[in-house]
Design a protein around this nucleic acid. Structure first.
Length: 480
RNA sequence: CCGGGUGUAGCGCAGUUGGUAGCGCGCUUGCUUUGGGAGCAAGAUGCCGGGAGUUCGAGUCUCCCCACUCGGACCA
C-alpha cells in the first residue's frame, strides 16, 4: 500500500515541499499546457483550452444579458495611436512587441502588437459616437494580447495570453461608474458561483492602478500558498481618454460633451488561480461548473459480458441530462484510470462493474474529499447533480476557510512583518493614503497593497506605517 | 534583467581519463489479466537543446546563443 501510494504521487511534487514546482508539475501532467520554442509563449492543450472555453461561454452569456456586444478590432496599434494618452503609453510601451517590417519592406511607423486595446477602441468610438443617442456603447472583445514579460509561468504570466476586454462609453459619469462596479460584481459572482473561489472586492491604490485609469477596481484571490492573485479588474477612466482622442457627442442640451469610459477584463490567468486554489497533491481539482469532464465513467471488469453496454447506458442518460461525461474503456487498469482522472481533476468518478450491475447500483467518488458511496442507478441524474453541487460548495467552503484563516488585522508595520514571515496571507491595516508608506511596506516587509476593500473595518485611527491619521483599511499581501 | 540549478528516446534518469549511447517506465504486437497506476514474451524509438571552436576523434573540454526551472527585480 505504501509502495502504491508513493508511486501515485511520484509524478507530482508535493505542494508542501515546493509549491511552485507542484504548480508547474500539475500544469504539465494534467495536460493543460505545453511549451513552445519561444519563452513565455505557451500552447493551450485541449484539456486546458476546454476549461477556457467553459469560462468563456458562461461569462459571455453574462455580458450579453447585460447588453454587451462582441466586436473584434485589429491586432496592431500604430505607435502614434498608442502615444495619444500619456500615462497609458508610459505603462505599456516598455513591454510591447513591435512590428517593424511589412513583407520585406521596413514600415514607416512601427506597430505595437496590442498589449490591451483602449486606444483602438477610442479611435473607433471617435468615429461612431456623435450623439447622446449613440450611447451607451457596450463592447467586448475576446482575443489574445502580447506583453513582453521578462519571466513567465504557465497561465500566471504569459507573453501571449487569452482574455476578454470590455470597453464601454457612457453619457454620464454616474453611468460609467455604475458600469465599472457592475462588471466587477459580475466577476466576483463568477468567481464564487462558478469557480468556487471567494474574492476580496476593492479599489486599487493610485500606485497599483491601471495606467490611464482614474480608478481601478479588483477582485483579489488567495492561493493555497497564501499568496495573492489579482483575479480580474474593472477600470473607470472618466473622460481622460475621450479628451485625448477627441471623442465628443451632442447632448440633449445641444452642447458637445466627452463621454465617460470603462474597461474591464479577465484572462486565462484565472485557470492558474483555479489550480492554486483547489489543487492538491494528487493533482488538479476542477470546480464542477467549468470542468471539461464533470463525470468520468470507469467500467470495471469491462471484458465481461454486458459491462460496457451498462456503462454506455449510464453515460447516455447523464449526457441527456446535460452533464459533460466521458467513459474510459481503454485497456488501462481501473487503478490506472482512477489516478489519471484524479490528476486531471475530474470532479466525480463513477465506477460500474458486474457486482454493481447485479444490485442496480454504481460507485460514486468525489474528487474533492475522496468520499466514496454506493448509489442506486435509478435517479442517477439527480444524484449526480446533487453531488456536483456538493463538490462546488465543498470547494468554496474550503477556499473560504483558507482566506479567512489567513487574513488578520495588524496595528503596526512590525506586526505585519512578523505575521507575514510566520504564515503569509493577507494583512489588514489602517493606512494614511500616502504612497511613501506603500513603498516602505514593500521595502521592509515585501508586501504590496492588494486593495482598499469595499467592506471597510475601522481597526484604529492611525496608519500602521507612519502613525498619521488613517484614511482607509488596506489589505496587503505577496502577489503573483 | 540579476543570481542558482537543468537540457541525453514520449517521461524520469545514468553515461568513468574524450573513442561514436544505455537503464527504468511508457509505446507497438500477442497472450493472460481487470474494484487503486497488472504479468509474461517479442519488438520499435536518438542531429545527446542550437552554433562555433580545440582534437585524429566531443554527450564529455572551451566560447556564444536558446529554452526550462527555483529565487529576486520588474510587471497588467
Amino acid at each position: 500500500m505504501a509502495q502504491e501510494k508513493s508511486k501515485q504521487v511520484s509524478q507530482i511534487t508535493d505542494m508542501e515541499a515546493d509549491f511552485a514546482q507542484w504548480y508547474t508539475d500539475v500544469c504539465r501532467k494534467a495536460e493543460l499546457i505545453d511549451y513552445s520554442s519561444i519563452k513565455g509563449m505557451f500552447i493551450y492543450r485541449p484539456y486546458g483550452y476546454a476549461i477556457w472555453e467553459n469560462i468563456q461561454r458562461i461569462l459571455d452569456d453574462e455580458f450579453k444579458k447585460l447588453g454587451h456586444e462582441n466586436v473584434y478590432l485589429p491586432t496592431l496599434i500604430p505607435e502614434s495611436l498608442l502615444q495619444k494618452e500619456k500615462d497609458h503609453v508610459e505603462g505599456f510601451a516598455p513591454e510591447c512587441a513591435w512590428v517593424t517590417m511589412g513583407g520585406s519592406e521596413p514600415l514607416e511607423e512601427r506597430y505595437a502588437i496590442h498589449p490591451t486595446s483602449e486606444t483602438l477602441f477610442c479611435e473607433h468610438y471617435q468615429n461612431i459616437i456623435h450623439s447622446h443617442r449613440d450611447l451607451p456603447k457596450l463592447y467586448n472583445q475576446w482575443c489574445s494580447v502580447i506583453r513582453w514579460e521578462k519571466t513567465s509561468r504557465p497561465f500566471l504570466r504569459h507573453r501571449e495570453f487569452l482574455w476578454q476586454e470590455g470597453h464601454t462609453m457612457h453619457a454620464t459619469e454616474e453611468e460609467a461608474r455604475e458600469e465599472t462596479e457592475r462588471m466587477l460584481g459580475v466577476y466576483a459572482d463568477f468567481y464564487e458561483n462558478v469557480l468556487a473561489m471567494p474574492v476580496v472586492k476593492g479599489r486599487k491604490t493610485d500606485k497599483e492602478k491601471f495606467n490611464g485609469a482614474e480608478e481601478t477596481y479588483t477582485v483579489e484571490c488567495m492561493m493555497h500558498d497564501r499568496k495573492a492573485l489579482q483575479g480580474g479588474t474593472s477600470h473607470y477612466f472618466g473622460d481622460g481618454f475621450a479628451r485625448a482622442f477627441d471623442i465628443t457627442f451632442a447632448g440633449r442640451d445641444n452642447q458637445l460633451h466627452h463621454p465617460y469610459q470603462t474597461s474591464w477584463g479577465v484572462s486565462t490567468r484565472m485557470i492558474g488561480g483555479i489550480i492554486m486554489t483547489h489543487g492538491d497533491n494528487s493533482g488538479l481539482v476542477l470546480p464542477p461548473r467549468i470542468a471539461p469532464i464533470q463525470v468520468i465513467i470507469i467500467p470495471v471488469a469491462q471484458h465481461k459480458e454486458g459491462v460496457i453496454q451498462a456503462n454506455e447506458a449510464v453515460m447516455e442518460r447523464l449526457r441527456k441530462a446535460g452533464f459533460r461525461v466521458k467513459m474510459d474503456a481503454s485497456d488501462n487498469t481501473p487503478g490506472w484510470k482512477f489516478a489519471e482522472y484524479e490528476m486531471k481533476g475530474v470532479p466525480l468518478r463513477l465506477e460500474l462493474g458486474p457486482k454493481d450491475m447485479e444490485k442496480n447500483q454504481c460507485v460514486l467518488v468525489r474528487r474533492d474529499n475522496g468520499e466514496k458511496s454506493f448509489v442506486c442507478l435509478d435517479g442517477i441524474e439527480d444524484t449526480v447533480a446533487r453531488a456536483l453541487d456538493a463538490i462546488h460548495d465543498g470547494l468554496y467552503q474550503r477556499a473560504k476557510g483558507n482566506l479567512e484563516e489567513n487574513t488578520y488585522a495588524c496595528a503596526t508595520l512590525e506586526e505585519v512583518k512578523e505575521k507575514m514571515a510566520s504564515r503569509g496571507g493577507f494583512a489588514k491595516t489602517m493606512w494614511c493614503g500616502d504612497e511613501a508608506c506603500e513603498i516602505r511596506m514593500k521595502e521592509e516587509v515585501g508586501v504590496t497593497s492588494r486593495c482598499i476593500p469595499f467592506e471597510q473595518e475601522r481597526l484604529g485611527d492611525t496608519c500602521a506605517c507612519c502613525g498619521k491619521p488613517a484614511k482607509h483599511m488596506v489589505v496587503w499581501g505577496v502577489a503573483y
